[in-house]
């Protein structure tokens, strides 16, 4: 249910912008963090606060793929199957997970824990094949590591992102996307190994950019 606290937070998001309608995308993230999906109630609440019609909110809520109109599990598991990841093993991982979890694309396991979705390129191609759990990076996966991963998630074991913090729930993640900090920023590394290969090589070779005016 959208209670007064949520309403106030929705209004707070809208107030970050010179024109309040700009708040709609993060507001829908907040709706998801509260309701576990975008529902007519959530649409109505956004419409009221922004003084636009529910149809206008619906138009937006159905355009962006991160907004879900069916309940999402505690862990949204995305497998990149865009070309590069697919070729590097993403297709095999996705097939394996569908089979292992006994769900199809965009479906949730019966225990409500894991929702599986094949996703498009997530800007981590140098870590292919890539998975995302609640939009945290899970780099360099294999079918067996993926199975281990979802099993751990379902078993409630602590899982850490390869380039990020301990995995929180999908609803908690959506709250961060709405612009409310969860204090986890300092967890995880600055960069993964692949991000640093060039830098390391340069250091090894003593390569640098030229000295500038100020140096």
């Amino acid at each position: 249910m959208i209670d007064q606290k949520t309403r106030d937070e929705l209004a707070e998001i809208a107030a970050r912008y010179p024109e309040k309608r700009s708040g709609l995308l993060p507001m829908l993230h907040l709706v998801q963090s509260v309701l576990g999906q975008v529902t007519p109630e959530g649409i109505e609440a956004c419409a009221e606060i922004l003084e636009i019609t529910p149809a206008e909110v619906s138009g937006v809520a159905t355009f962006y793929t991160m907004y879900k109109r069916r309940p999402v599990g505690d862990y949204h598991v995305g497998v990149c199957t865009n070309t590069l990841c697919a070729v590097m093993g993403g297709d095999a991982i996705f097939a394996r997970l569908k089979d292992h979890l006994d769900v199809g694309n965009d479906e949730t396991t019966e225990d409500g824990k894991v929702s599986l979705e094949h996703i498009e390129c997530n800007a981590a191609c140098d870590y292919a094949p890539v998975m995302m759990v609640n939009w945290e990076f899970m780099d360099n996966q294999t079918p067996s590591s993926a199975v281990q991963l979802v099993d751990d998630l379902r078993a409630g074991k602590e899982v850490r992102s390869t380039r990020g913090p301990k995995i929180c729930t999908w609803r908690e993640a959506e709250r961060v996307l709405a612009g409310f900090s969860d204090g986890l920023v300092d967890e995880g590394p600055a960069a993964g190994e692949a991000s640093l290969v060039g830098l390391k090589l340069a250091a090894d070779k003593g390569w640098t950019a030229p000295k500038g005016a100020d140096q």
């Binding site: 649409i43 419409a47 019609t53 149809a55 619906s58 138009g59 159905t62 355009f63």
Partner: peptide, 21 residues
């Protein structure tokens, strides 16, 4: 009266209303 809107995306894009409105 923007009570009808484009909804969905791409090839699935269609005209629609919000549920209950």
């Amino acid at each position: 009266d923007p009570f009808i809107e484009l909804i969905e995306r791409g090839a699935q894009q269609q005209i629609g209303i919000a549920e209950g409105a």
